[in-house]
Amino acid sequence: MKLSVLDLVPVRSGQSSGDAVHASLDLARTADDLGYHRYWVAEHHNMPAVAATNPPVLIAMIAGATRRIRVGSGGVMLPNHAPFVVAEQFGLLEAAYPGRIDLGIGRAPGSDPVTSYVLRHGGGGVEDDAVARFPRYVDDIMTMLEPDGASLELNGRSYPLRATPAATSTPPLWLLGSSDYSARLAAQKGLPYVFAHHFSGNGTAESLALYRDGFRPSQYAAEPTTLLTANVVVAETAEEAERLARPQLLAMLALRTGAPLTPQRTVEEAAAVQVPAAHEGLLEAMRSRWYIGSPDTVAQGLGRLAAEHGVEELMVHPVAGAGLDTPTDSSPAREESLRLLAKAMD
């Protein structure tokens, strides 16, 4: 079983963005030392508890701070970006760290509607249905990343387009999604695929079946290639794991119920929060899909998840919170989750 890591670069009470980035760099070094296979960062915008706003910048920092682990995006939200810019960014990353870069692409906004508008169109740009153009944009990126690049016909002339002048390798491209749309598209194009099990938890089996049944072999993948994501908190005792999980559970509850978003609470702040009775069922439903507990309990649960869905790689999202006395530039409970899990799964 391969283990990998997903990181949203969380920002908690009392932390600066710089603190959060430093904590994630330490987490990446820990994952690298422990033998984790990949380390992916997400793309979210204008959120007080998430500093992962720019995957290519973070990937460059993380790849430079680690030795062997693959580093990638989980993912770049393609409707927010020009395909040529994405191809340039990841072509350059692959050139700097050959064989260590993954390009994961999604079509979700990764933000609220106002922020999405600013990202895509500025203060008065022409409306462009980037979501509808998503399949074509994926094709454009795949072509422009190839050493020979693409050719654009304009006014009777052919203009070459290459992501980088002299590519010797290309990063693998993954499609990400939480519905059957990306599953079908990945199958059609013969691309590796990831279902966002950590976020949705519903429809995983159906999406994977659609992907596997409809898969067409390609130069990018000879057979269906997938992994699963899961939220995890691992501690020496189940009680401690539950305490460490509560800050992130409360953050997700706020997101799902439309409550004001704030920096992630410390474990002490989270323990003092009284959840309204009307929301207790939703909180427990989310918690039931997470893997929270002692090392053996979480390892066994993840083993069952992998067996149920027939995957040989799991990407864990370590969501353990921090205490009031935790140094602001570190996240020791997230690092400990990775250590304890690696040992239990060995």
Rank of each mutant, 00 (worst) to 15 (best):
R120E: 14
R100M: 07
R100L: 08
R29F: 05
R157G: 03
Y36T: 02
D129Q: 04
H44F: 10
V114F: 14
A95N: 07
G106S: 05
M144H: 06
E94S: 06
H121F: 15
G75I: 06
N80H: 07
G156Q: 01
E146Y: 03
S24F: 01
T30I: 08
R29Y: 06
R133A: 12
G64R: 13
Y39W: 10
F134P: 15
D26W: 08
E127R: 15
S73W: 04
F90I: 09
P113W: 12
D26F: 08
P160K: 02
D102T: 07
L119H: 04
A167P: 03
A51N: 02
V118H: 11
R70S: 01
G75D: 00
A49M: 08
E153A: 13
A52W: 00
A130N: 12
V57Y: 04
Y159W: 12
R70P: 00
R162Q: 13
A31I: 09
D128P: 05
H37F: 14
P48C: 10
A82S: 12
A150D: 09
P113G: 01
V118D: 11
G123C: 06
R29P: 02
A31E: 11
A28C: 10
P147I: 13
Y39P: 01
A150H: 05
E94Y: 11
T115V: 07
V57S: 13
H121N: 04
S116R: 08
R68Y: 06
G75S: 10
G75A: 12
E146N: 05
A63N: 06
G99Y: 15
M77T: 04
P56A: 09
D32C: 04
L152D: 07
R67Y: 12
T143Q: 15
I105Q: 01
L152Q: 14
R67C: 06
A52L: 05
G64Q: 11
A42E: 02
I105R: 02
N80V: 07
L27V: 06
R120Q: 15
D112A: 13
I141S: 01
I101R: 01
V118F: 14
D129G: 07
A166F: 14
L25A: 09
L119K: 02
Q89W: 08
E88A: 04
R136F: 07
W40P: 00
L25R: 02
A95M: 14
R29V: 01
V114P: 02
M61F: 10
R29N: 02
I59E: 03
G72M: 09
D148Y: 10
R120K: 08
P109A: 01
A49N: 08
R38N: 04
G110M: 02
G35F: 09
L119Q: 03
P135C: 07
Y97D: 00
A65H: 09
F90Q: 00
P147C: 12
A65S: 11
V131A: 13
V41K: 04
R68A: 00
G125N: 06
L58F: 01
L103P: 05
T143A: 15
L152I: 12
T30Y: 12
L78Q: 02
M47V: 15
V41Q: 06
L152H: 14
A132K: 00
G74R: 08
M61R: 12
F90W: 11
V118L: 15
R162C: 12
T164V: 15
A163K: 03
P165I: 03
D102V: 13
T53E: 09
L154M: 11
M47Y: 06
I101F: 07
R38V: 02
D148T: 14
A51I: 03
L152A: 15
A163R: 01
Y137G: 13
S158N: 11
